[in-house]
Design a protein around this nucleic acid. Structure first.
Lengths: 150, 150
DNA sequence: CGCTTGCTTGGAGTGCACTCCAAGGTTCTA
DNA sequence: TAGAACCTTGGAGTGCACTCCAAGCAAGCG
């Protein structure tokens, strides 16, 4: 049970995660900034709103991120690219914390996201057609004015 | 010269524009709201920030949109779908107002946008791969737990 | 030990793209 | 011609996703 959620969480060896040094498993916030490209502000904010699963602390209270946090941040980065609202990501994180009985809901959430992404790709391909049309027009107009000039 | 910019502006018969009644050429703001799905607020705001080419007014000062405005709004809608910042659209509108000598710059702007759209599509396809992976995982886990149960 | 650099917090500020408001003038329908 | 529905304006407000700040504690180095 536990092992299944863990695998779900870290996504195993699936998609490539953020780069990181080998054989290490705790990082300061600035190291995570360097790996992920996020700012320290954003990392703290993610934690505050419940988007991080629970970050370890040093004995003096400083954050010590682990590899699983980097994996999670890599996945969050993907979700961010989909345009998913942060509130929905937080919802997904909550479902993860609640355990295996939320499998179905998590799957649905991801499927809804996938539908949105597919729609978005189709929209973008539509805009691409318009852009091609316009750009060809400008190209044609310039070619025409050049041939007039020649 | 003029005719070329006009064609560029309205995009001629190219991509399909917002639906509208045939054989009419002036519309109140609420009609344009119905055709475009934008709000009246947004239409006025577009005009204020210089994103509309110049909307006619009735003798009492109310807006009377024309077909070319609907064409332009359809194009702006496409640009909006690309994720282009409004400021860049305003820039494009300015270039249009400045006349034919801005052809090259307009073409560049559109080409840069097209590059962005292509990048965005590639990103989204990357996220799709991750989503597929995760969704398959949930599907597999559920199938496994069902077979255990059986 | 002192110095610099890094980390902590709650709360306030930013930029974008709208979104709404109040107060009043206009247009249409009965 | 009355009333409802629609239109006008400048300016203020909203929601999202950060982004920054001040004040103070922590860590590593010569």
């Amino acid at each position: 049970m536990e092992s299944i959620s863990a695998r779900t969480d870290t996504c195993a060896s699936g998609p490539k995660a953020h780069p990181r040094p080998e054989g290490q498993d705790h990082y300061t916030i600035s190291e995570v900034v360097a790996f992920t490209g996020l700012t320290a502000h954003t990392l703290r904010w993610y934690e505050r709103i419940g988007l991080m699963p629970h970050v370890d602390r040093s004995h003096t209270g400083q954050r010590r991120f682990r590899n699983r946090d980097l994996d999670w941040l890599a996945f969050v980065g993907k979700l961010r690219l989909t345009g998913m609202p942060v509130a929905d990501m937080v919802r997904y994180a909550e479902l993860l914390r609640e355990g295996d009985h939320t499998f179905a809901e998590r799957q649905e959430l991801l499927e809804a996201t996938r539908r949105d992404v597919r729609t978005r790709i189709a929209e973008l391909q539509g805009t691409l057609a318009v852009l091609d049309f316009k750009i060809d027009f400008y190209g044609g107009a310039r070619a025409a004015s050049e041939s007039e000039r020649v």
